[in-house]
């Protein structure tokens, strides 16, 4: 029976490629799917912006670019730390990996804290999603991004747990790479979001 099962499998089995894709191929389906949704949102934002550029420009002046810039630096730093961590795992220098992941996690946490402070400041000045279209997009886009960042922090916690193991299996390393790619996506989305909301004139 078992030999027959195997023979039948070989018949329908797909060929395996030798090229290395970081993480599982499936995680990329998810990442590209997510980025497509954000791309559609960005285009929608620009479309509505083109409808009423005066309102968008005037509202944009109330945003504090310092928050945006510091947050961009924080995420870039965290991405660098995560990328270094993946390289360290590959080079089998595992002692340093938990520290790198913890550093990236702290950057993410700081981003989240700054974001909440920024939202709080806006709302206390009476700038709410209902104020106008610009603020609607500002809150929804940054909110959706923040939601992804929080998921990313959970992912990083899991990577931290994996990093403390003395030896990672191939499958676990796949998760590690996939999680790192997700974190890079969070970073990348912010790098597009920051100029779109804070800088575009």
């Amino acid at each position: 029976m078992s030999t027959i099962t195997r023979a039948a499998d070989e018949k329908v089995g797909r060929p395996k490629t030798e090229q290395h894709v970081p993480g599982e191929v499936g995680t990329w389906v998810f990442i590209f799917g997510d980025m497509t949704i954000f791309a559609i949102l960005f285009v929608t934002y620009l479309y509505y912006r083109a409808d009423d550029p005066k309102l968008f420009d005037a509202s944009q002046k109330h945003l504090d670019q310092t928050y945006g810039a510091v947050n961009t630096l924080l995420l870039l730093l965290s991405s660098l730390l995560v990328a270094t961590a993946v390289r360290a795992v590959r080079a089998r220098k595992v002692q340093i990996v938990p520290w790198l992941i913890a550093g990236a996690f702290s950057c993410g946490l700081a981003f989240s804290g700054l974001k909440i402070a920024e939202w709080h400041e806006k709302v206390s000045h009476g700038l709410k999603p209902a104020t106008n279209d610009f603020y609607m997009y500002y809150f929804v886009l940054t909110g959706l991004h923040w939601f992804h960042l929080i998921i990313g922090l959970f992912v990083l916690s899991f990577l931290f747990y994996l990093a403390r193991k003395p030896e990672m299996s191939k499958r676990q390393f796949g998760f590690f790479e996939g999680g790192a790619c997700f974190w890079h996506m969070v970073d990348l989305l912010w790098i597009v979001l920051f100029p779109l909301l804070y800088l575009v004139k």
């Binding site: 191929v25 997510d34 929804v140």
Partner: peptide
């Protein structure tokens, strides 16, 4: 496995609809 990731993506993507109660016009 890729299909499972697609399923997770669909599960999350649908959640964008909940914003409809906050916005009476526009993309949401």
């Amino acid at each position: 496995r890729w299909a499972s990731y697609v399923n997770i993506w669909v599960a999350i993507t649908g959640a964008g609809g909940v914003l409809a109660v906050f916005f009476h016009s526009g993309p949401f």
